[in-house]
């Protein structure tokens, strides 16, 4: 009886995680990124691919985006290796200005990244800004990043922070509203060298291999 109950799960796992599935993902050119980014921190799942490329939700994004996240003007966003703003549910990425996300940065659910304000005297006009987030950062759940903010490498933004100012040195933990430094390791070389700059075996900027990304960037992106 118990074996029969386990059978649907076994069939499901064979279809979606079995060797036939991975072989198919590898030989079809459209799904090759799913195979080569498997197991990464922001790897592309089959569900991401299906929602974006088949159903067409967030189709214009060149990196994996959850179907509940919203991305405005994805061509103004530079996404580094293994970084994916919006792969977590509920994110809002507004790129009327320009957004640069560094390599291997992780972005939690419900994060808002804003890159433009309304002009105070005439709300119809936008005032675009530039948001730069460094490599290996962690943006905690529910944080909001305002236009014109620069965050250095290895910045940890605590959950629920409202980042209104720049912290370009990196190697720090920021928290609160407005966000301020809780811990700053940027002046201590012996602690800074403990942070690990790992590299993936297959480097992909979203769906695009890193070797072909500069070509894609010149052709399609405005950043």
């Amino acid at each position: 009886m118990r074996n029969i109950l386990k059978l649907p799960g076994k069939i499901y796992r064979f279809i979606f995680y079995g060797p036939v599935f991975w072989f198919t993902m590898r030989i079809i050119p459209f799904t090759r990124a799913v195979y080569y980014t498997r197991g990464n921190e922001s790897g592309i799942t089959f569900a991401n691919w299906f929602y974006q490329k088949v159903l067409g939700i967030n189709r214009s994004c060149y990196w994996p985006v959850h179907f509940t996240s919203t991305v405005r003007s994805p061509n103004n966003i530079y996404v580094g290796i293994d970084a994916a703003p919006g792969v977590s549910p509920g994110c809002y990425i507004q790129a009327v200005g320009k957004i640069y996300i560094g390599d291997y940065t992780q972005i939690a659910p419900n994060v808002g990244i804003l890159s433009s304000n309304h002009f105070m005297l005439d709300v119809r006009r936008h005032v675009p800004g530039v948001v730069r987030i460094g490599a290996y950062c962690r943006i905690g759940m529910g944080s909001i990043i305002h236009p014109g903010v620069t965050l250095g490498d290895f910045t940890t933004v605590a959950a629920g922070s409202i980042v209104t100012k720049s912290f370009p040195n990196g190697y720090c933990v920021i928290s609160g509203n407005p966000a301020s430094i809780v811990a700053d390791y940027s002046g201590i070389e012996s602690i800074k060298e403990k942070f690990i700059r790992y590299r993936n075996i297959n480097e992909y900027n979203g769906y695009i291999p890193h070797s072909k990304f500069e070509e894609f960037r010149a052709k399609r992106l405005h950043v």
Binding site: A183, Y185, I188, S190, I191, K194, I196
Partner: peptide
């Protein structure tokens, strides 16, 4: 978790050792 790194750093300097990630 914040002062933990400062603690480990000062112990390393005091005893002239280098911990690896698994130790930490």
């Amino acid at each position: 978790s914040i002062s933990n790194l400062f603690f480990i750093d000062s112990v390393e300097k005091a005893f002239q050792v280098k911990f690896d990630l698994d130790d930490i």
